[in-house]
Design a protein around this nucleic acid. Structure first.
Length: 193
DNA sequence: GAGAAGATCTCCT
DNA sequence: GGAGATCTTCTCA
């Protein structure tokens, strides 16, 4: 199986965020595997980004953002939801990409068992939804996405034409005006068109 | 050791 | 369209 290399993640956060679109997240559980294509992301940096967890320096929670790129950074928010991030940049440079929406390609039934919704598009069209559908919790925090395991990322199987749209970020107060949100134009699984 | 805020979702009107 | 749910983490005393 083809995995994305460490070099892919060890670049500018905005570049990695844009190129993660169309890549596939693979989640392996005891019941089977789920493959989900990334269709929407947001970039989070450090000092220049007031909305980032890393803005005020390193803490026990966000230290993964300061480490090497290519690791899963999962955190719990609002008492109800997990959010999945992918760390970027090099050691000492904070950066991460928030996965906001995915499109499930394999294992739809497995994912559906984790969430009680009828509509397929509502299964994974939000940060808290996709983590629930893929059973991602803080147990996945710190996993190396460049190695085979419970969670990793592969390039898409075949080339696919899609148009990338860049907009302001969603759901945050500080720094919301930066155009650091990317999604695949016309995709039904994007949280907000 | 306590208080407040948060990169959200779902249900109800 | 709006408020509640509900817990982790950070900040300050």
């Amino acid at each position: 199986m083809n995995l994305l290399s460490r070099d892919f993640y060890a670049r500018d956060t905005l570049v990695v965020a844009g190129e993660l679109l169309g890549k596939c997240v693979v989640r392996r559980t005891s019941k089977g595997s789920v493959v989900a294509k990334i269709v929407e992301v947001e970039a989070y940096k450090g000092k220049e980004d007031p909305a980032s967890h890393a803005y005020r320096g390193m803490t026990p929670r966000n230290h993964l953002m300061f480490g090497e790129g290519g690791f899963a950074y999962v955190y719990f928010i609002y008492g109800n939801h997990y959010c999945l991030n992918i760390t970027t940049e090099r050691v000492g440079v904070p950066g991460a990409v928030l996965v906001r929406a995915v499109e499930i390609q394999h294992g739809t039934e497995l994912a559906r068992q984790n969430r009680k919704v009828k509509s397929l598009t509502k299964l994974t069209n939000g940060p808290g939804k996709l983590t629930q559908a893929l059973k991602i919790t803080k147990r996945q925090n710190g996993l190396d996405l460049t190695k085979l395991g419970d969670l990793f990322i592969i390039p898409q199987d075949h080339d696919e034409d899609f148009e990338t749209v860049t907009t302001d970020r969603v759901g945050i107060k500080a720094g919301a005006k930066k155009p650091w949100r990317f999604y695949i134009k016309g995709n039904k699984f994007v949280s907000k068109p």
